[in-house]
Design a protein around this nucleic acid. Structure first.
Length: 568
RNA sequence: UGCCCCUUAGCUCAACUGGCAGAGCGUCUGACUCUGGAUCAGAAGGUUCCUGGUUCGAUCCCAGGAGGGGCAACCA
């Protein structure tokens, strides 16, 4: 009774995929350690959806003592580029994962072609001369069977001859394709003689140049690439469920002894953003954002530039888990993961985003005190202090003063007191306005007995606000980033409009002249802080420089005052 | 001749494969106070989509239905 029973080590709740992998290990099904792969196509930057997949694939390999390859699924010469390969590698590494093998589907083209010849020889594939349009029409519809191609019954010898001439570059693009010979009336559309190889004679592949001319399609390349690498479980998203049948058909026909098995999980959908490479590409190409690494983008590069740490992304991926049903995740879950991570890691600083001047009328002119300020709050297990200057003229945030405050407003107002963080208690005596009625200065008095840490510092006031010393503060630019879209589902727009109609015009608000305490001047670019009572910020790695401070807001703090206001 | 998934708390998921439906986030309440936008504690919240069936017992198995989603690119 007396001694505390230590909390039992509760194993993290397993998802259905990890259960299957654990079964594989227990039964020795594959006769080898679990092997996964992350297979991006190098035609765009990685985003949060990919991060989920990366954490899953690499996480499983790590947990089960297996391997995870990075494989570029580069089978479409029209859209792929080496610059995307580099960006993807950088992003995966930044997320904290090391791949076992680095492979390219384009390195398997020869092997795939040999498998194609094998299929042709055994009557399992044929060369089709139909036009693209005819192929589409003759595939039938979801409710009606397709029509066999007139070329479907060519002899293996004829098919082999045509296939070789396709490879040799004798035919125009689109003149012929290689198709699997399965069933044109199959209830699964994917199995209606799927296309295997298409001719791209003029195309320039970023790795193969113009030397290779018959390119495999996804279905043909993907499962076989997995099999070639000895993958055990091939994890992909739900929309590939129907493709599993052709995946299994191909690895079986190719004669792999212990072929991989595909498992599908739900792709991530995140509120207030889009996670589709096609849509992200449009945002970039049409100039709605500044680039793939715009801090508003849900790309790994964008999140990195904004200041999110990889730890937060990994925690988020773990939190949302994986499931077999569609998953739309609230952005609050992500923001919570980001705050939770930063809370324990980054030092506090004082910054005033929307400054209004405060003059302490009873503070000696010309006097400057150095105040000691804690870098971390009492409940964060880190230590550190700094000194910040205090003087007669200060800035506080305009939001922290109200001439006519509502109930429960515990900040500064005429005749009322508030504590300046790490400093003194002050009282507002007079409000100075310009001709237009705008407040230009608050004339206050301070209580010299209440300096933080001093003998009589424990006098209580309701509120504490942040401030900076006007003559010492550094001017800086602050970029307040917000959700890119103004509604949870950007695709939920009226007929005739697309997701761009839901763009949030205030996703970036730039404050040209904010004030920050001088201690940040010496920190390297890319340093993160919490600006007390405001949010988490990082100096922008591209635009910030000594003498020109630029801060990105990573995420705000939880806004319980706004909630209080809403309640009325 | 359609096929394949999915449906459990506001949201995302659990429930050891038939045994008193749980967790995180969110919400609410309280505590604390030099972050009243930090932190901590507690609470509320359920016809497990519906209708039958099997069973001592069904979220789980079976049948039918409803709702949501995927598939008819020489994209992946």
């Amino acid at each position: 009774m007396a001694d505390q029973t230590p909390a039992p080590e509760t194993p993290r709740a397993r998802d259905f995929i990890r259960e299957l992998v654990a079964d594989d290990v227990a039964t020795g099904r594959f006769g080898r350690a679990p092997a996964t792969r992350f297979p991006p196509e190098p035609n765009g930057f990685l985003h949060m959806g990919h991060a989920k997949s990366i954490c899953l694939n690499f996480g499983i390999a790590r947990e089960f003592g297996g391997t995870c390859n990075l494989r570029f699924d580069d089978t479409n010469p029209f859209t792929e580029d080496a610059k995307y390969v580099e960006a993807i590698k950088r992003d995966v590494a930044w997320l904290g994962f090391t791949w076992d093998g680095e492979f390219y589907a384009s390195d398997y083209f020869e092997r795939l072609y040999e498998i194609a010849e094998g299929l042709v020889t055994r009557g399992k594939a044929y060369v089709d001369d139909q036009t693209e349009e005819q192929i589409r029409t003759n595939r039938g519809t979801v409710t009606s069977p397709g029509t066999p191609s007139p070329w479907r019954d060519r002899t293996p010898a004829e098919n082999l001859d045509l296939l070789r001439r396709m490879k040799a570059g004798e035919f125009e693009d689109g003149a012929r394709v290689l198709r699997a010979r399965i069933d044109m009336a199959h209830p699964n559309m994917v199995m209606r003689d799927p296309l295997l190889l298409r001719i791209r004679r003029g195309a320039h592949h970023y790795r193969r140049g113009t030397s290779w001319q018959v390119f495999p399609l996804y279905d043909f390349a993907h499962g076989l690439s997995d099999a070639i690498e000895g993958i055990t479980r091939s994890l992909c998203t739900l929309e590939f469920k129907d493709n599993r049948e052709i995946y299994d058909w191909l690895v079986r026909e190719a004669g792999f002894a212990s072929p991989p098995t595909q498992i599908e999980f739900a792709r991530l959908e995140l509120d207030y953003t889009v996670l589709s490479k096609r849509k992200l590409l449009r945002l970039v190409n049409e100039g709605h954002v500044a680039g793939w690494d715009d801090p508003r983008m849900p790309t790994i590069a964008g999140l990195r530039r904004r200041g999110v740490r990889p730890e937060a992304i990994r925690t988020f991926a773990e939190t949302i888990g994986v499931a077999r049903k569609d998953a739309r995740v609230e952005i609050a879950i992500f923001e919570h993961a980001v705050r939770d991570d930063l809370n324990m890691e980054v030092p506090r600083r004082l910054a005033v985003l929307n400054p209004v001047k405060v003059v302490l009328t009873n503070y000696p002119e010309g006097q400057v005190e150095q105040l000691e300020a804690q870098d971390y709050p009492h409940d964060v297990p880190r230590t550190g202090t700094r000194t910040i200057p205090f003087s007669r003229e200060l800035y506080i945030d305009r939001d922290d003063f109200l001439e006519d405050p509502p109930k429960k407003f515990f900040r500064l107002s005429p005749g009322n007191e508030v504590r300046l963080r790490f400093g003194y208690i002050i009282r507002c005596e007079e409000v100075v306005k310009d001709a237009a009625g705008r407040i230009v200065e608050l004339r206050c008095t301070y209580d010299p007995e209440t300096r933080s840490g001093g003998a009589n510092s424990d006098r209580k006031v309701k509120g504490t606000i942040h401030w900076v010393s006007a003559p010492h503060a550094l001017s800086c630019e602050v970029r307040l980033y917000d959700r890119l879209f103004r509604q949870p589902d950007p695709d939920d727009v009226p007929e005739g409009q697309d997701f761009l109609a839901a763009l949030n015009p205030e996703s970036l608000v730039v404050i040209a002249d904010a004030k920050v305490e001088p201690t940040v001047a010496a920190d390297p670019v890319g340093t993160r802080y919490q600006f007390e009572r405001t949010g988490y910020f990082m100096t922008d790695v591209v635009d910030s420089a000594p003498g020109r401070l630029v801060f990105n807001r990573i995420v705000g703090l939880r806004d319980s005052w706004a909630k209080e206001l809403k309640k009325g």
